[in-house]
Simulated scan of single mutants.
Amino acid sequence: MTKREAIFPADRHALYTAHRYSAAVRSGDLLFVSGQVGSRADGSPEPDYERQVKLAFENLNAVLKAAGATFEDVIDVTSFHTDPQNQFETFMAIRETFLGEAPYPTWTAVGVNWLAGFDFEIKVIARVPQSA
């Protein structure tokens, strides 16, 4: 059985320690990334929705990079939205700048009513390249 390996980005934010979780866990060549939010370094939410989503994607990118992966290695995505009807257009425009071209990963978007002060969260599963 493969032992799990905790992965953290170089500039990890305070939420990992405060809530006692790993940014990601690598098991074999699979990387399971915890939900990433648009937090500032101190763990507080970025109040501007557009900037919050960009920060969440930037935080996700940092975790992928720490594991030796990129957005091209992402297999499955789940995103959480507090007001999907009003947020989706902004979210989709930002998503396109990070996700790249087809073939796209699978994606599930979920409307929720609470994200601990955040309006957006994204979690992924990726396959880490053998060279990493």
Rank of each mutant, 00 (worst) to 15 (best):
G38T: 02
S39Y: 01
S39A: 13
S39V: 01
R40Q: 12
A41C: 01
A41Y: 06
A41L: 08
D42I: 02
G43Q: 06
G43K: 08
S44T: 15
P45W: 04
P45V: 08
P45K: 12
E46N: 08
P47M: 01
P47C: 04
P47Y: 03
D48A: 13
D48I: 09
D48V: 09
D48S: 07
D48C: 06
Y49F: 15
Y49P: 14
Y49I: 11
E50S: 15
E50Q: 15
R51P: 00
R51Y: 04
R51I: 11
Q52D: 05
Q52H: 03
V53T: 07
K54M: 09
K54E: 13
K54V: 11
L55N: 07
L55F: 03
L55E: 00
A56S: 08
F57S: 01
F57D: 00
F57A: 00
E58H: 04
E58L: 08
N59T: 07
N59M: 00
N59R: 15
N59W: 00
L60F: 06
L60V: 09
N61G: 13
A62E: 06
A62D: 08
A62S: 10
V63K: 09
V63A: 01
V63Y: 02
L64N: 09
K65H: 12
A66R: 04
A66T: 05
A66M: 03
A66Q: 10
A67M: 07
G68S: 02
G68N: 04
G68V: 02
G68W: 00
A69H: 12
A69G: 09
A69C: 10
F71R: 09
F71N: 08
F71D: 04
F71C: 10
E72V: 05
E72Y: 04
E72S: 14
D73G: 01
D73C: 11
D73K: 02
D73V: 02
V74L: 05
V74T: 08
V74I: 13
V74A: 04
I75V: 14
I75A: 14
D76Q: 08
V77P: 06
T78S: 14
T78N: 12
S79Q: 03
F80A: 03
F80S: 01
F80H: 10
F80M: 13
H81E: 04
H81Y: 02
D83E: 11
D83S: 10
D83G: 13
D83C: 05
D83N: 14
D83A: 14
P84Q: 08
Q85H: 13
Q85Y: 11
N86F: 11
N86I: 03
Q87E: 13
F88G: 05
F88S: 09
F88N: 13
F88K: 12
F88M: 15
E89L: 11
E89M: 15
E89A: 14
E89Q: 14
E89K: 15
E89P: 07
T90P: 06
F91L: 13
A93W: 06
A93I: 05
A93R: 15
A93F: 05
I94S: 05
I94F: 07
I94D: 06
I94L: 11
R95N: 12
R95D: 04
R95E: 05
E96I: 08
E96C: 08
E96F: 05
E96G: 11
T97P: 07
T97R: 15
T97W: 06
T97H: 11
T97F: 03
T97Q: 15
F98P: 07
F98C: 05
L99Q: 13
L99A: 10
L99S: 12
G100K: 06
G100N: 10
G100E: 02
G100H: 04
E101I: 02
E101H: 09
E101P: 02
